[in-house]
């Protein structure tokens, strides 16, 4: 009789021991205990401060190194000139061709990674048998572990030739091929984080949908996906940052030729590709040409920051309190 009422909230045991005086009375904590806590707290603070410090240091170097550049080139020229030729005899310093290259390759990559990554995440968490998921998830994560140099040559030697079968006048260097390859590389960034977010959606929400007569796919797309959206948005933002910052693939396969074009079939250079190109080249340190990589770096930083802020706003907006 008594066993079935096991989760009866009245549990006499705890209350009894209190009253029976078996526990020592509460005392103020020992000096040692408080010191230890202080120590741990300041240790954690230090660790947090360290990461902020490094970020601050990077920003400082970027800004201070790009100041000589901006003394020479007006912000107006920087933002409106349609050419980026800092190494030419007649230099132009318009950043927009590099920004266009970066945005276009990023857009191509996201067009691949977001839908594919999201679908993989939904499929893995809602449809795949759990055994298969345990195998597939780490396998998928290997995609992100392949060295980007390999991806770069994969784009030049395989993807672009394959695309040329469909688009005959596609130049050897273009933004489409490396964009697609970059997209494949960041699929696991999207799918892994999204899957975590999707799995965190409480079963109760899914049951609510099934109970109304919804099928598996409808439930996944109309209830689970929106419920997990704030986490999935974080995954998208990470993917964007990763794509904007990707260097090797575009440097190898997109042509290293600044080009104010949003057409993925054109060759182009991205901000990162330019930076790596100049820093590996033989421009003398301190020349305006060399300092231009810091101006480009500042631009990259501002773009990434912008995407992250948008991401934070989206997360807040869509955050669900289950």
């Amino acid at each position: 009789m008594s066993t079935i009422l096991s989760d009866n909230p009245v549990s006499g045991g705890i209350a009894g021991s209190r009253n029976g005086g078996l526990l020592p009375p509460l005392r103020s904590r020992s000096l040692l205990g408080r010191l230890a806590e202080r120590f741990i707290e300041s240790g954690l603070l230090l660790a947090a401060a360290f990461s902020v410090l490094i970020t601050g240091g990077i920003v400082f170097v970027l800004v201070s190194e790009s100041l000589p550049f901006f003394r020479h080139v007006s912000a107006r020229e920087f933002l409106t000139d349609r050419l980026w030729t800092p190494m030419f005899a007649d230099p132009h310093h318009g950043i927009m061709p590099l920004v266009a290259g970066t945005l276009t390759t990023t857009a191509v990559a996201l067009l691949v990674a977001m839908p594919v990554g999201t679908l993989i995440a939904v499929w893995l968490s809602e449809f795949a048998p759990s055994r298969l998921r345990e195998v597939l998830k780490p396998a998928l994560e290997l995609l992100a572990a392949v060295p980007t140099v390999v991806y770069g040559y994969f784009a030049v030697d395989f993807v672009t030739p394959a695309l040329q079968a469909f688009i005959p006048d596609l130049p050897t260097f273009n933004m489409l091929g490396p964009g697609i390859v970059m997209g494949v590389m960041i699929i696991p960034y999207v799918s892994s984080l999204s899957e975590d977010a999707i799995r965190a959606v409480p079963m109760l929400l899914r049951e609510g949908s099934y109970a109304l007569g919804a099928g598996k796919f409808t439930t996944a797309m109309r209830v689970v996906y929106p419920a997990a959206f704030s986490g999935i948005a974080s995954a998208y933002v990470l993917a964007i940052s990763r794509a904007v910052g990707e260097t090797m693939i575009v440097a190898i396969a997109a042509g290293q030729q600044p080009n104010l074009s949003f057409n993925p079939l054109d060759p182009a250079a991205t901000i990162t590709a330019f930076i790596v190109q100049v820093s590996l080249g033989d421009l003398p340190h301190g020349s305006i040409g060399y300092q231009s990589i810091f101006a480009a770096g500042v631009t990259l930083f501002v773009m990434t920051l912008g995407f992250n802020i948008i991401g934070a706003v989206m997360r807040r907006r869509y955050r669900q309190a289950y």
């Binding site: 049951e207 609510g208 109970a211 109309r222 929106p226 869509y318």
Partner: peptide
């Protein structure tokens, strides 16, 4: 389930 509806112990509105 189209003929039989259910309300759960904990409210579970959709997002």
């Amino acid at each position: 389930r189209m003929r039989i509806s259910m309300v759960f112990q904990k409210p579970n509105p959709f997002p």
